[in-house]
């Protein structure tokens, strides 16, 4: 069952082949072949590390940008989204239901830098009729991983 395998990798991409084999009850060879296949077919798109940059002096700012788009013949939602996603500053792009059309997560070194990127690049795209920028102030949880440490195991060491 590849779903089981994907769920495990989605939780921790660094499980060893031996761990994955144990946990799925399949041989190491089978697991390796499955992962290979999932990568080739594009189901697995990549492996990344969840970093809490705020713990380093190397922090960055990020913002959620609401884009309103009036699709034109040449530049529909799809085309705008594909144009937006090519900027290295852009971390993710989603087509949304509701009061705006594209949700764009942007990352930069400074507030100023992000604001300038929105003003100079995103808002000048043809078809984009308005932008609203919301800066992220604190990250509590990212990609299922909690970034604050106030949870602890309060169960003690023993119970029957």
């Amino acid at each position: 069952m590849n779903i089981k395998l994907l769920k495990l990798l989605n939780k921790n991409a660094r499980y060893s082949m031996a761990d994955l084999s144990s946990m799925t009850g399949r041989s190491i060879e089978e697991v390796a072949a499955d992962i290979d296949e999932l990568e080739k077919s594009g189901v697995i798109r990549g492996y990344k590390t969840v970093v809490d940059w705020e713990r380093l002096d190397n922090s960055y700012v990020s913002a959620l940008i609401e884009l309103k788009v009036t699709p034109k013949a040449r530049l529909g939602f799809e085309e705008v989204a594909k144009k937006v996603m090519k900027y290295p500053e852009v971390e993710s792009v989603y087509l949304m239901s509701g009061s705006y059309d594209l949700c764009v997560m942007v990352k930069g070194k400074t507030f100023q830098g992000v604001a300038m990127f929105v003003a100079k690049e995103l808002s000048t795209i043809e078809s984009v009729t308005s932008t609203a920028t919301h800066f992220v102030l604190r990250r509590y949880k990212e990609l299922d991983v909690e970034l604050c440490d106030d949870e602890h195991d309060d169960r003690g060491h023993f119970s029957f």
């Binding site: 195991d153 060491h157 119970s159």
Partner: peptide, 20 residues
Amino acid sequence: FFDIAETMKDVISLGVGEPD
């Protein structure tokens, strides 16, 4: 022996009988 464990700082336990 439970009490000894309580005095240690870096105990890693597989001792409890309740869900995490």
